[in-house]
Computed example of a mutant assay.
Amino acid sequence: MPGLEAFGDRKFPAADLLLSSEGRGWQGVGLQVRSHPACDIPAPIPDEMEITLAIAGSASGRVERCAGGSFQKTAARSGTLWFCPIGVTEDSIRITEHLPEVLHIFLAKSQFESLSELSSRSLTPASVAYLADVNDELVRQICLRIYREAQEESSGGKLLVECLTQSLVAHLITSYSSDGPRLDLDHGSGHGKLDDVRLTRVLEYIQANIDQDISLSKLSDVACLSKHHFARAFREATGTPPYRFISERRLDQALDLLKRSDLPLATIAHVCRFSSQATFSRAFRRHVGVAPGEFRHRARI
């Protein structure tokens, strides 16, 4: 089944693909980075929300687009943000000059449905505003952090992206949607602290499943908290966000396997939930300072 990235393939046939989250196993979110030539872009009706951020834009180039009678003519400088909600039919999109590096984040409808369950009322993804040149540093920084994870995969990256996406969707609804003013995520079912009993249960689950994919949904279920509140409660209880805690445990596991086993590096990468040996080796070198093979050699001298 094609992922969310497939929409970008249909929408931007003339743009070179520089980076993609395809194959990373991210849930409910996709990422592409493209180099866009000056051109007119076909405008299919999106099944997911698209956030676009110019990483490297143009000093004089513009993006001109129109939907529902709203015409937008935006300078495509580095850092410029655009929103295109689910179901919006764009009549035209035109890029006037080459844009060297543009980030596209695709958010699935299921992300908004999950927020609807938490708020106990229906939230409409299409109610998010169709906007250009959005001045929102929070959205920009969340997108850039997801971008960095796509560039340099970490063993806890899928959980990190899940947490970031959840925060991003909640912010979009509260700040840019007609559903937003009544949305209260700090009250309601599942709110609470992670007491010692529940924290122990979560830590035991992580330890028992460290070589499996661990989702925010599953951790919040084990803790009997909502997804929205779990990450904050875990950080308050441990001083560490869940993705970093899991990443550190997996690094410890990798160190132990390199010291005590003859497993191939590709197998260790898989056990530690990396998408490839290459991404594992880069992440290991960042954290330890040497490549996994060299670490194994030194540990056995």
Score class of each variant (00 low, 15 high):
Ile95Leu: 06
Ser120Leu: 14
Asp91Arg: 12
Tyr147Met: 13
Gly69Cys: 03
Arg121Asp: 05
Gln141Ser: 11
Leu168Lys: 01
Gly87His: 14
Arg121Val: 06
Ala129Lys: 09
His98Ser: 03
Ile93Tyr: 08
Gln72Gly: 08
Val161Thr: 12
Leu164Trp: 01
Ala75Asn: 05
Arg65Trp: 04
Ala75Cys: 04
Glu153Pro: 07
Trp82Met: 04
Arg145Pro: 05
Arg121Met: 11
Tyr147Leu: 13
Gln72Glu: 07
Leu115Ser: 08
Ala170Lys: 08
Glu149Thr: 14
Ile93Phe: 07
Arg121Ser: 15
Pro100Ala: 02
Pro85Gly: 11
Phe71Val: 01
Asp91Glu: 15
Asp136His: 05
Thr96His: 02
Glu101Lys: 15
Arg148His: 03
Gln111Ala: 06
Val128Ile: 14
Leu103Ser: 09
Gly69Met: 01
Phe112His: 09
Ser116Val: 04
Tyr130Lys: 10
Leu160Tyr: 05
Glu101Leu: 10
Arg94Tyr: 00
Cys143Phe: 03
Thr74Ala: 06
Phe112Met: 09
Thr96Gln: 00
Ala170Trp: 03
His171Met: 02
Phe112Trp: 07
Leu115His: 09
Gly157Asn: 05
Arg140Trp: 01
Gly156Glu: 00
Val161Cys: 02
Glu117Val: 15
Glu97Arg: 11
Val161Asp: 03
Leu160Cys: 12
Arg77Phe: 04
Gly156Phe: 03
Pro100Tyr: 01
Glu101Phe: 05
Ser167Thr: 05
Lys109Ile: 11
Ile146Pro: 14
Tyr147Ile: 01
Ala132Gln: 11
Ala126Asn: 10
Arg62Phe: 09
Ser122Asn: 09
Glu153Tyr: 01
Leu103Phe: 06
Gly156Thr: 01
Ala108Phe: 03
Lys158Tyr: 02
Gln141Tyr: 02
Ser92Gln: 06
Phe112Cys: 07
Gln141Cys: 06
Tyr147Trp: 14
Glu101Gln: 14
Thr165Glu: 07
Ser127Leu: 12
Phe112Arg: 04
Leu107Gln: 04
Lys109Pro: 15
Ser78Gly: 11
Leu131Asn: 07
Ile86Lys: 15
Leu172Thr: 00
Val63Gly: 05
Leu164Glu: 05
Lys158Phe: 03
Gly87Ile: 10
Val88Ile: 14
Gly68Asp: 02
Glu162Met: 00
Glu153Phe: 00
